[in-house]
């Protein structure tokens, strides 16, 4: 058992609270060119995803896990294709709950 380095569920709003720490989020890919990927967060803001995307083409929704390195940027270590259908509003609520009232279940 190891709970020393959790990846926090975040949306763009919550991302800024975790700069320098490990986070996870799901973005809708807006643009992907030359190593930088622009995505839209579950709370409808733009996020810059750095790091090297996997060789496979990205689907509409992608989960990234990595270090929050700015107010609107994540350096991704892990990329997971989440397919073309994903309920972002539920995910957004989960981010809020996991950082609010029920933080103790996650962090």
């Amino acid at each position: 058992m190891d709970t020393s380095s959790p990846a926090v569920f975040v949306n763009a709003e919550l991302l800024r609270m975790y700069i320098g720490r490990k986070v996870r989020t799901v973005v809708q890919i807006v643009r992907s060119d030359g190593g930088v990927v622009i995505g839209r967060s579950a709370d409808e803001q733009q996020l810059v995803i750095k790091g090297s995307p996997p060789p496979l083409p990205l689907t509409t929704f992608v989960e990234v896990i990595g270090i929050a390195d700015g107010n609107q940027s994540i350096h991704a270590e892990i990329w997971n294709n989440f397919g073309d259908i994903f309920d972002t509003s539920s995910f957004n609520r989960l981010c809020e709950l996991a950082n609010g009232e029920f933080k103790s279940l996650f962090l």
């Binding site: 799901v26 989440f82 994903f86 539920s90 989960l94 709950l97």
Partner: peptide, 10 residues
């Protein structure tokens, strides 16, 4: 279906 992840934590 990756909504299962959200669903599980909820």
């Amino acid at each position: 279906d990756f909504n299962e992840i959200t669903c599980h934590f909820l």
